[in-house]
Structure formats: structure tokens, C-alpha cells
Amino acid sequence: MKKIVIIGATSAVATETARCFALEGAELFIAGRSQEKLERLADDLRVRGAAVVHTGLFNARDLASHDQLLESAYHTLGEIDAALIAHGDLPDQTECQHSWIGTEQALATNFLSPVAFLTWLANYFEKRGTGNITAISSVAGDRGRQSNYIYGSAKGALSVFLQGLRNRLAPRGVSVTTIKPGFIDTPMTADIKKGPLFASAELVGTRVHKAMKRGDSVVYTPFFWRFIMLIIIHIPEFIFKRLKL
């Protein structure tokens, strides 16, 4: 894999994935919402060994601009071998419960925006054959919990979308990878009290890189979340609805 597009590249996890690709001498197109952060990361990736690094700005709320961003990525790189969709935002659950406006924004950032990117990428890779599309979903999307179901429903919808896409593109030799991280110690979770289940962004980002190269389907990271979620999904609803989760 030589030519990689990373959307939401300045997020802690995607930054680590980008660094893994840079070490291999990849050509990268990285997109984010802050030019300053992108420039800083681009320098870092060049020093680490990336052959070329291009940057692109985007706003996740401006869905109409997404096609254009990928078009320009495609034209600068010449072709795309793999793409990672990594942007997201943790909404304030209580605020969303009081007003649907917050929910609408959360769905736009965490679901509709990734879908806009994925739609373009799906059509590109379907025509091209071979390659990998990866998006970062979350274990929060596996079952709705009272403390986090707005974010969870956006990520759950994204997981289902990716599942369908994987089914559609498999015959063309294109892999679609769903990453389901557990808790990660990142700026997005800065205000949450950290327990022993929190993993570093470096560990998760390195796993994403490996998944993209292998074309994995669904990846829980760290791995033990697969077992935790297996239990959570199978708790009968009449019990689950009474739990404080």
C-alpha cells in the first residue's frame, strides 16, 4: 500500500496510523479541520519517512464539500490504495436529551459525514477493484446504553452501513474494515475519569494500520473488547434495561 487517504488525520488514533504508513514510505493525503495541526502533522510524517504528504481542509458539517475533497485527493495522489475515515466527535449526552439539535449535529458528524466520504470511496474502489476502505466506529454502537446512546446510535448506524458496504464490495476484491475501539486515552475523552480499560492511541492506531494492510473485516481494539461486547450484547433486554450503564 503506497497511496493513502486519511480523513480526520489529526485525531489521536489516525495520527498514529498515519505515522505507521509514513515509516513505510507511503504517499499520504491527510485531511482535517485545522490547517495548523495538519501542517504540524505533515512535517512529522515527512521526517518519519513519508514519500510525500498532501493536506486538505474540511468541515464535517459541510457534507456537500466531501466529494470535492476526495476528488482533489485522488488527483494529487494519482490513485488511492486505501482510505481511512477517522473523524468523530463525542456529543454531550445530557444536552442532546434536552434538544434534538445536538443530536442532529452528532449524527451529521459521526454518521452522515463518514457516509458521504464512504459513498464516493465505494464507487471509486468498486470501479478500480482491490484496495481497502476503513472507518472508525465504536463499541458504543453495539448496544444502546442510557449514558451514551446518541453517540452510540450514530456509530451503530455507521457499523451497519460498513457491513453492507463490505458485502457489496467483497466480490470486487475490495476490503471494508470496521474498527471498534473501546476506551482510548485521547483529547476526545480528556474529561472522563480513566479506568484500567483505557488504551493508548498508539496501540489502537498501530492496530488500525495492521487491519488496513490485512483487509480485516471487524476489528475490536484492544482485542478483549470483543469478549466484553459479546457478553454485553447477550444480556437479555429485561435485565439490561434495569442496568445503570
Partner: peptide, 9 residues
């Protein structure tokens, strides 16, 4: 830990 970028070589 967020100051993790290489700048120039």
C-alpha cells in the same frame, strides 16, 4: 505526551 511530533531532520 501530546507534544509528539518530529519537526525537521
Amino acid at each position: 505526551s501530546a507534544l509528539s511530533n518530529l519537526i525537521a531532520f
